[in-house]
């Protein structure tokens, strides 16, 4: 039996960019800002590639992205890392986890992958919901916050170590399943020049949400986006007595 892995990747404001809030407080500035692949998605893709390269050998890794036309650049990055082909769902509208999960469910029905790997969250909205919602919609088992994934191709079982508050929880999932990745799972590879060259000729299939019969709507309304309050400058106290006095009367902590 051949095994296909689908990975969802998202284009976000680069992790290292200093985020600026729009003056009208409706969101963050994205114009003229460096955009890159969400780091957790990179980890998800790396894991899929490693599974394909390992003895367990999945036959194909399909990378999916949903977003405006520029998202194709991010998809090309995924192809340059080693994904076999890409799917771009073209949508300029604001997307929320439930809409994304519904689109992905449709694509699962088209592609029939045995395994879906997603980042645990995107660093722009920090929702951490898409993987869970998708597993619910598909009625598939889920292994979230994975720090280790072992695949048994014979038994069609994935063993996932999850990072939870009191340590590592190990779960076994019958395939098909949804896995979301945590930071320690792996270190993603770089896109080498030969692979960038190859990626240029890899196929990208295009869909629109309408073609997939998914209505993009939001159950959420963004009221306001504001910057965190600026930290005030500290002061240097001249004596222990002054310190104690300030802790008592100004900070009210002792």
């Amino acid at each position: 039996m051949t095994m296909k892995i689908m990975v969802a990747i998202k284009r976000v404001v680069d992790y290292a960019v200093k985020i600026r809030v729009k003056p009208d407080k409706t969101g963050v500035v994205t114009q003229n800002v460096k955009m890159s692949m969400n780091p957790f998605c990179e980890i998800a893709l790396e894991e899929a590639l490693r599974i394909r390269e390992s003895a367990a050998a999945a036959s194909e890794v399909v990378a999916v992205t949903i977003g405006p036309s520029h998202s194709v650049d991010t998809l090309r990055t995924g192809l340059a890392m080693g994904a076999d082909r890409g799917i771009h769902v073209d949508s300029a509208a604001s997307l929320y986890p439930l809409s994304v999960a519904k689109i992905l469910r449709k694509l699962v029905q088209i592609e029939n992958p045995s395994l879906l790997i997603l980042g645990k969250q995107a660093i722009d909205d920090d929702c951490n919901q898409t993987g869970q919602m998708l597993a619910g919609l598909l009625n598939w088992p889920q292994g979230t916050f994975a720090s280790k994934v072992v695949l048994d191709k014979e038994k069609q079982v994935a063993t996932v170590d999850r990072e939870v508050d009191d340590g590592i929880e190990t779960v076994c999932l019958n395939l098909p399943a949804v896995i979301t990745t945590d930071l320690r799972l792996n270190q993603p590879r770089y896109a080498t020049l030969p692979n960038i060259m190859k990626a240029k000729s890899k196929p990208i299939k295009k869909f629109t949400p309408e073609e997939l019969n998914v209505e993009i709507k939001s159950d959420l309304e963004i009221v306001q986006v504001t910057e965190p309050p600026k930290r005030k400058a500290g002061i240097i106290v001249s004596s222990v007595d002054e310190l104690i006095d300030k802790l008592k009367h100004e900070a009210n902590v002792i």
């Binding site: 680069d14 992790y15 890159s36 692949m37 990055t77 896109a191 080498t192 020049l193 030969p194």
Partner: peptide, 17 residues
């Protein structure tokens, strides 16, 4: 690369890289 001035290489995909 085709002219063999470069034998291998990587292109950063994000600021972190």
């Amino acid at each position: 690369m085709e002219n063999e001035l470069i034998s291998d290489g990587v292109l950063a995909q994000d600021i972190n890289q």
